[in-house]
């Protein structure tokens, strides 16, 4: 069920979402998205360009983060705008557990036109990885 606008209040917090990203997830996302940039799967090249290790695709992080909004809204089709600014790479070690990703969200504004702005805070091991992550959902 899609969330009703009448049930949405500014300041409301979304359920916290926690997940893990492993090297296997990066390979899967590379194939699905068509983004085969070497820094997302080759440790040697990642280090050569000055990264500590292989990093996740920014759009994988963004795609996982917006799930917190689509789940809360009840219908992914309600998302009319989504923007992110990448501030820090999500470093994915070559082990079973990978990198940790935590997504928190808060209703920042409710417009009379039914447009609800949700601001997300996305962290990996305590570090903010998106300096801006903002979704607008259209509810009625």
């Amino acid at each position: 069920m899609t969330r009703r606008l009448a049930d949405v209040e500014v300041g409301a917090e979304l359920p916290e979402q926690s997940s893990r990203v492993t090297r296997a997830d990066l390979v899967r996302y590379a194939g699905a998205s068509g983004d085969f940039n070497v820094i997302h799967w080759n440790e040697r090249v990642a280090r050569e360009v000055g990264l500590p290790d292989v990093i996740a695709h920014g759009m994988l992080t963004a795609g996982i983060a917006v799930r917190a909004v689509t789940r809360w809204a009840g219908d992914p089709g309600a998302v009319v705008d989504y923007q992110v600014r990448f501030s820090r790479p999500v470093v994915v070690p070559d082990d079973e557990s990978g990198a940790e990703l935590t997504v928190r969200g808060r209703v920042a504004a409710v417009g009379e036109d039914g447009r609800v702005r949700v601001d997300l805070t996305v962290t990996s091991s305590g570090d903010k990885v998106l300096s801006l992550a903002r979704a607008v959902v259209a509810l009625s």
Partner: peptide, 20 residues
């Protein structure tokens, strides 16, 4: 049932086309 004519794509799916 959610009111869409067929399955819809996740909000970031457009990156596939945008990259190309």
């Amino acid at each position: 049932a959610a009111g869409h004519p067929d399955v819809i794509a996740p909000p970031t799916f457009a990156i596939v086309l945008s990259l190309g």
